[in-house]
Amino acid sequence: MEAIIKIKSLKKSYDDIKAVKDISLEVYEGEMFGLVGPDGAGKTTTIRILCGLLKPESGSVKIFEKDIIKNKKEIQNQIGYLSQKFSLYGDLSIDENIEFFADIHGVKDYQQRRDELLEFTRLKPFRNRIAEKLSGGMKQKLALACSLIHKPKIIFLDEPTTGVDPVSRRDFWKILSGLIKEKITIVLTTPYLDEAERCNRVALMNKGEIISLDTPNKIKQALEKEIIEIVCTKIREAYKLIRDEIGFEVQMFGDRINVIINNIEKDYPKIEKALKEHSVEILNYRKITPSLENIFIHLVRKAG
């Protein structure tokens, strides 16, 4: 596969805060690449540098083998960007918003393309409604349609589903998979690890660094350990007990805890014994396949 985006030792800081610390990665043509991490991980900064909205402090970014700083406008004509904040014109209708973006990208005869996009995003019945009066999910779909009007080769989506209801979110993801079929490369950021699982490859980011970069499956396999999920009474006590007295890594998820162990046959009895001694009742337990979330928390803890 061919790398369409090449990032080398990218750094960026705001005053004293190092937002991005020495990132290197490549994105291949036609894949869906996810930058995943909590708020403040440096995802937005990275994606904004890729679009030419921010200047990097050091390092290089090459898109289509061209430098983003030197060939900014040329590159920008072939990419689409969807910012985190809704950034369309509220007083213009759906049709007019798309028309405007077609015009500034110099797209002539955009009508057919616009109809296609409206069909694709199922916004056609609302085409004359002003953008202000659309629901959150519809706004996001419109923004996507606007960023696709000039047939970009890559689209950058900055937290496209944050603040969108679950149904619209699923809808949005369906549209994205449709785009991948059209051979469009997608780079997106998301704080949701379930969304990250849908990407071809992901870069897990934390505090401006990439802590893991691979396909979601390989990242999960890289953890050569087992995870058991335990549902029990006195969950906080159990959590502290396992962490402090037995020394296993524990992750709490509401009414259950996940414990990372080396071997279930060998290690589970230790846990069972310890919990029994402190009169914690185990209601249920099972071995689970690690999720990205488990891995992410594990990696963040390991990094300190």
Binding site: G52, N77, G80, S83, K85, S87, L88, F101, I104
Partner: peptide
């Protein structure tokens, strides 16, 4: 203020 300048900034417009 509305953030629309971002979309204009990523377009080829000068």
């Amino acid at each position: 203020e509305r953030g629309t300048i971002e979309q204009i900034n990523v377009s080829p417009i000068k």
